[in-house]
Nucleic acid binder design. Sequence first.
DNA 1: AGAATAAAAGACTAAAAACTCTTCTATTGA
DNA 2: TCAATAGAAGAGTTTTTAGTCTTTTATTCT
Lengths: 143, 143
Amino acid sequence: MVSKTCEYAIRAMLFIAQKSVSENKVGVKKVAKAIGSPEPFIAKILQDLGKKGLVLSAKGPNGGFYLNKAGLKNSLADVVVAIDGDKLFNGCGLGLKGCSAKMPCPIHNEFVSVRKQIKKMMESAILGDYHRELELKEKYLTR
Amino acid sequence: MVSKTCEYAIRAMLFIAQKSVSENKVGVKKVAKAIGSPEPFIAKILQDLGKKGLVLSAKGPNGGFYLNKAGLKNSLADVVVAIDGDKLFNGCGLGLKGCSAKMPCPIHNEFVSVRKQIKKMMESAILGDYHRELELKEKYLTR
DNA sequence: AGAATAAAAGACTAAAAACTCTTCTATTGA
DNA sequence: TCAATAGAAGAGTTTTTAGTCTTTTATTCT
């Protein structure tokens, strides 16, 4: 559905969001441990997300990654688009470039509605909103 | 959503289904042309589907791939599972192995309903049912 | 100022997915 | 029966995605 890179990105962002609400910045090491990902890999992904303005960071002691008020309002859809692009929300289910309402693939209409549901779900999943249930361990980010 | 291999597989199967209703067997060459795929690649995919009993084939002159009555009743879900396995229908949206109702990821419940819709859609898309609209060029299999 | 900390940058390697090529075997029809 | 047709099998290559390593740069605290 989304790439593995994107799965790590989402999990990392949810963790950073949680910590940004309750505590402060978190280093890559902590992030990697919390979400069960290879440390250098998630580091690279976070740098990429940083360039795209989805996460903030500070170097040096007590540095790390964090989100401000605005960042906490971003949705999973924003993260997905930053990493995988919008093909999940707009692409054809059978991989046809020219697929459209005028030249539909056999399952075009059915897919439109599936994609709409996915998009809606991802857009209403706001990073900052998961703080409480993660904190209470009602929801998990590890394998 | 599904692998490229799986996209080719679905398109090929829909084409073979169409031809099995109206005409007869089709060779790989025709299939490749009809769905816009590399010929040796779709050949390999079809051989795989053949082994798994989803498509029939005959060697020699006038040979090719075809579907019988039973084969025409298979759904896109059957093809997807044969190629990609059932991770699309059962996997976690964030790639967590241990994600379940007891230890859910943050978007577990939302994903359950998305996956249900996808599964339902794929299961009700029956190979033999697209014959007419493909024949009339109301629906397309090429890029 | 300088040592320690932590991210940035980018080159590099490994694994998986996508795609190709060659050789073999079965079928048919002249 | 033999030449032509067409799929079967499997090894090989390319490309993309995933993951690693090394060096540099910025920040803080003593």
